[in-house]
Amino acid sequence: MISTDKPTGTPARRRSHRWFIALLLAPTLVGMGIFTILPILGSLVLAFFEWDLVSAPTFNGVDNFVALGADTTIRRAFINTIGFVAIAVTLQLALAMFLAVMIQSRMPNWLRLFFRSTFFFPLVLSAASVSIFMRYMFNEQFGVVNWMLNLVGISSVPWLTTQTGAAAVVIFVFVWQNFGFSFLILIGGLASIPKELHEAAEIDGASGWRHFRNITLPLISPSMLVASVTAMITALQVFDQPYVLTRGGPGDSTRSAVMVVFEAAFQRLEFGLASATGLVLMLIIMLITWGQFRLSRRLVFYQ
């Protein structure tokens, strides 16, 4: 076994211990440096240049940021993304919480295991494959969803070809695929709540709602914080579902911020504008995450 305690030996031994830690961290740090830090720095530089891959990059100051602000499609994509995050993350967390509480209540262990695996399963599927599959399911003329609606006398819904329908499907597919992760985090949090607290509350005659509000919710709040931060970051980066399901349409109704980065870079070869857009998105993600942690000081309770 390797001790990670601070060594108390000679200075030479302490130096050796530091080198050892550095060596163990090196592969991760090198990987992060090459694949995360360098691209971010590259994007930062590129955001101030005009570059189409073929010609030499030319410095254009803040033109890309000005263009970004003036471009109605990009503005719309950012607004879409914020709206999408608000709805999708709320639904995802609410669904995950509901199912976690249901499953954590009286239920045989084997059934609990079955549900855990089932709810997590969509997460291990490729988002592109799921979206292709869902595109068939929600096809207006030939999809199984409308076929089932028709069976119960409801007329076909133009799911993917109207703005509201397309947005609803993108949100549904995203939530369906991602709620399993929040669910697992929350069920872990629920399992760590001491049973004695619920037993004591029961003796005091607390209702189910009081159990949830005064015991479960405060004690699960650290898990909620983790679940909401990860869900928010994932939702802000949504790409696969709208790209495969609707290509951002109809119109721009489901175009996301990452889609406009992709389109600027890989369809229009405007790598400067794409970098600027990516940086703005990164700043938004950082700002929201920072806000969540600030808020957590008041709302999250650690035992």
Binding site: P158, T161, T162, R247, G249, P250, G251, R268
Partner: peptide
Amino acid sequence: QAEIENALARNVATAMGG
């Protein structure tokens, strides 16, 4: 072409949807 096709696709979808 990429910008033309993008503009066409998204506006045709809107034009045909309402």
